[in-house]
Write a protein that binds this DNA or RNA. Structure first.
Lengths: 182, 182
DNA sequence: CTACAATCGGGACAGTTGTCCCGCTTGGTC
DNA sequence: GACCAAGCGGGACAACTGTCCCGATTGTAG
């Protein structure tokens, strides 16, 4: 690959990352190109469809989160690992509008492209959930889809006035619901 | 107003109601017109913009819910009134994709047009919330936006496999989080 | 330095959708 | 039954966006 092509590819990816994070996934491709200082043709050669641009960005972020989740699973007791993972996921998504939309399934379906083990958020989430349930830390009747829905709720909270305190409280509310009653 | 005009207006409203409920707010206006057996011009004369069509439909639904909420406030103790209201809101929205989207703020902002007392969901929600908090049934640090976010979470649950049991569990999870710990 | 192939820029194109307008039709009254 | 304004149908128009292509440019091997 030619040096300038490589440079352009990275630049587009970089600009797209921060633009999607700040303004969401609905920003036009032409706008990404403009901010990156390239033509639309250049973007569409490196990323033939908008989805492929989403993929390149979101999968990278997801891989990071999955990695952190596995670390948690290895170093914490099952209950703490699960709740810390939940908070981590929300915190990450809350500061990145694009990721938040992908997680909420608005505009891009993460899970249909994130099947490789290093991207499989669903699998690692289920792993942590089941572990926490076996340890008696989470209600036994909860399923992964419930957890995801609560996460979407936390992210929805961000859209109406976002401050760290509200975010913490919101995570706390969700976790309190999930916790096994004694 | 001419009789046929009145008839057409009602027919459009009726078709739009069920179409939005079944397929969401993104159905094109032309499709509504087609199903109602009228031209697009007829729709746009009665409802100059798509938003005005949303308004006519959603405000009607919201008015019903607000009414039910006031009944609950009058006939139940504050805690029960609040939790029953929450469940009611979710149940109503769950079976109506359009309402669900409006409640989640996806495609239409209910609260900016629902300011009249009989439509003011926000006001009645706050009323019930504060009552429940004073009675010690709900955590005192919760604010209305938190409740709305949890509701959005419940509605998000519907999008990934919807069955009555899961819905009940999801409402239960959310309410458990809101409840004051002892 | 030269030549050529890879790459680039940006405009063309197609598909969607909301809004508006105009010529024709029809309901309701005299 | 006739008249005319209210109302209708549906096509025109504009705005937006994703995708593709072509002529111009530029990096790089020899």
């Amino acid at each position: 690959m030619r040096a300038d092509a490589e440079r352009n590819r990275k630049r587009v990816l970089e600009v797209a990352l921060e633009t999607f994070a700040a303004e969401g996934l609905s920003v036009p491709v032409a706008e990404i190109a403009r901010r990156a200082g390239v033509g639309t043709g250049t973007v569409s050669r490196h990323f033939p469809t908008k989805d492929s641009l989403y993929e390149a960005i979101v999968l990278h972020l997801v891989a990071e989160i999955v990695d952190r989740a596995r670390q948690l699973a290895a170093t914490r007791d099952p209950g703490a690992a699960f709740f810390e993972f939940f908070a981590l996921l929300v915190e990450h998504s809350a500061v990145n509008l694009g990721l938040s939309q992908a997680m909420s399934g608005t505009g891009f379906d993460v899970h249909s492209v994130a099947l490789a083990p290093e991207h499989n958020l669903l699998a690692v989430e289920e792993e942590l959930l089941v572990g926490a349930q076996k340890a008696g830390a989470v209600r036994p009747d909860v399923v992964p889809a419930d957890v995801k829905a609560l996460m979407v709720g936390c992210l929805a909270r961000e859209q109406q006035g976002s401050d760290p305190e509200a975010r913490k409280r919101m995570i706390d509310l969700a976790c309190a619901g999930l916790r096994a009653q004694r």
